[in-house]
Nucleic acid binder design. Structure first.
Lengths: 247, 247
DNA sequence: TCACTTTCTTACATTTCGTCACAATCGAGA
DNA sequence: TCTCGATTGTGACGAAATGTAAGAAAGTGA
């Protein structure tokens, strides 16, 4: 799951969603999924659709899943990405309120909702962990609408790139050179931008030597400080050209 | 809490946040607050600030509370409004991640988080209800970022007005003629618009005879169909002038 | 290697919204 | 009732994002 926080941090650094509460050492929820059946999906396979009766809760093992809605006007709004380790469908509602589809070959575990709730009744640790995840999700959604509502196109892109980098850090992967896991149009639909604007913003960042690109997917975050400044809304867009001059 | 859903509805009408799950007849959570101490606050009094240790969960009895963040750039982002019946601070995190302040004389009940969690351990109905509220909150936050990200200024205003109307309906109040509970600048900070744009959009709606205003707060939703069309993003803004001509 | 598709980039015209400056309105308290 | 101050409304202007349309680059498969 991608999250962001470009707003003022409180004194201690309890804001980044990954830190809302310390992960308990015993992961009871993970245990529920440990022996769950695994499904292997190809790219672009649907997991479920909006309006389906919610029967299962999923956990992504590998690959990537897109959580999205199709709006009245036909546009697609990506609500979230689910990457390895993320859960899908934990909220309590009788029907799924969004579509889910893989964007890459994906291995996924599923546990029936009923089973999970039974576990929750027996083990309060499970309840705590679900609360924690839901709380984090609220925080993520709020952070996302701050990103959407308050940041310029370039700021949103910066936020997105930093979220990917932070995610990689958490998983001890390279957070400077990595592959973008999604296409430009997915980024656009996630950040409420047009593909063209995404493209333009990336070019701008490249020109300012804040990032560099090899091909379409391989990216290098060359100036993380500048990205953070952009993601914090501290710089207006023409300040990007300041970085450019400095470089 | 104000919510919206301008995206495509699934076949059944399970999307509006108020309908995520049917309200259980027994409201265990309400019971927890029934005998909780009541505080009377004046307008513009803070309830708590971002970064405070979360000690209590609140329920608004009367009045109105603003949930907001102050961003790095000094802007205020209103995350939510809490009106009578709404809970504040239910998410599980050791610190409050936002500020809360009254905007009107407000009566509020508070229960300590510890007490609430103890209740939750003993009574699974409480757990269910909290899950439900959190799920609704996720849905609300997501709906809100669709509103912010995808709708024009007028569409956002329309969504906001409809949310107020629906809220009044739920409480069996007048959903056509009512008082705006907040100032223009609060609407602006909630919808990520400037005060001027809020003002202009309201004027536009008034000119198109979709709404009418008496003074600054009293509003009448004259053409709800048009509002819904705008909130659904079905109309581009110059279509407002079509309604104007028709009227 | 070549043809072909998908994905991405760029340029230009247009639109929307924010900013600034100032006028008008409301309503609380004298 | 009147006055004052906070709030709201309006117009002009510029900056930023979008849509359109055309074209380039990367990937795909024979």
């Amino acid at each position: 799951m991608l999250t962001s926080a470009h707003y003022a941090e409180p004194a201690s650094n309890w804001t980044s969603n990954s830190r809302i509460a310390p992960r308990p050492h015993r992961c009871a929820l993970d245990d529920c999924f440990a022996q769950a059946p695994v499904r292997q999906l190809k790219a672009k396979e649907p997991l479920f659709a909006e309006g389906d009766t919610k029967s299962n809760v999923y956990k992504v093992d590998s690959g990537a899943v897109l959580i999205y809605k199709i709006l009245n006007d036909g546009f697609r709004q990506i609500v979230n990405f689910a990457f390895p380790g993320d859960y899908v469908g934990l909220e309590m509602s009788p029907l799924y309120s969004y579509d889910a589809q893989t964007i890459a070959p994906t291995r996924i575990r599923s546990v029936s909702s009923a089973t999970l709730w039974r576990q929750a009744r027996e083990d309060t640790v499970v309840v705590d962990e679900i609360f924690e995840i839901l709380s984090r999700e609220i925080s993520a959604a709020r952070g996302h609408f701050l990103t959407i509502g308050r940041l310029s196109a370039t700021g949103r892109i910066a936020t997105f790139l930093l979220a990917l980098a932070e995610r990689n850090e958490r998983k001890s992967l390279d957070s400077v050179n990595f592959q973008l896991p999604v296409r430009r149009s997915d980024i656009a639909d996630f950040l409420c931008l047009s593909v063209e604007t995404v493209s333009r913003s990336l070019t701008e960042l490249k020109t300012a030597r804040i990032i560099s690109l090899r091909g379409w997917r391989q990216i290098k975050l060359a100036n993380r400080e500048a990205l953070e400044s952009l993601a914090n809304g501290e710089t207006t867009d023409n300040c990007v050209s300041q970085w450019r001059k400095a470089a």
